[in-house]
């Protein structure tokens, strides 16, 4: 039960942060990516704020702990392999990010607006994820 509260609290703060920073607005995102013409650097400040908090707590506290508070172990990725999957996937994501102006978090948190455009981008995103899971992952498993 306590774990469920933590999931909710973390997601609540995350959604609030995305909304406050206006990263839910595709114009802010595409303004950031429009580096070569008229640039909106706001997204850099979002990342600085988030990374500062995360890094300070991670290096001063979490790294020294054996287990999280309400779960048996930390599930932190440890791989250092730079694979074609990682790079090709990230490039495809970046292209989609540029075209639509949404990344997964702001697309989902923006659903509360009940706006058809947000539903379209979320439905397309979930379809892309499903395509990956159903088709691509099975092909990779077989090969």
């Amino acid at each position: 039960m306590k774990a469920r509260f933590f999931y909710f609290l973390a997601a609540f703060l995350f959604g609030a942060g995305l909304e406050l920073s206006q990263m839910t607005d595709p114009q802010k995102v595409q303004g950031f990516l429009n580096l070569t013409r008229s640039w909106d650097p706001s997204l850099i400040f979002v990342m600085i704020g988030a990374i500062l908090v995360n890094s300070i707590v991670y290096y001063t506290w979490i790294k020294k702990k054996e287990t999280p508070l309400f779960s048996p172990k930390f599930l932190i990725p440890t791989s250092k392999d730079i694979t074609p999957k990682l790079i090709i996937g990230s490039i495809l994501f970046g292209i989609g990010w540029g075209i639509a102006g949404f990344c997964p978090g702001p697309a989902l948190s923006g659903l509360f607006r009940g706006q058809s455009e947000v539903f379209i981008v979320v439905a397309s995103m979930l379809s892309g994820m499903l395509i990956y899971n159903v088709i691509f992952e099975r092909i990779l498993e077989k090969s």
């Binding site: 973390a10 942060g17 706001s42 908090v53 995360n54 508070l69 932190i76």
Partner: peptide, 22 residues
């Protein structure tokens, strides 16, 4: 707002990691 929003996002991800390790 970008910096404050970012700090909230940082708190959120820190809470998830400290609380349930994810």
């Amino acid at each position: 707002p970008a910096l404050l929003g970012g700090i909230l996002i940082g708190l959120a991800s820190t809470i998830l990691l400290v609380g349930v390790g994810r």
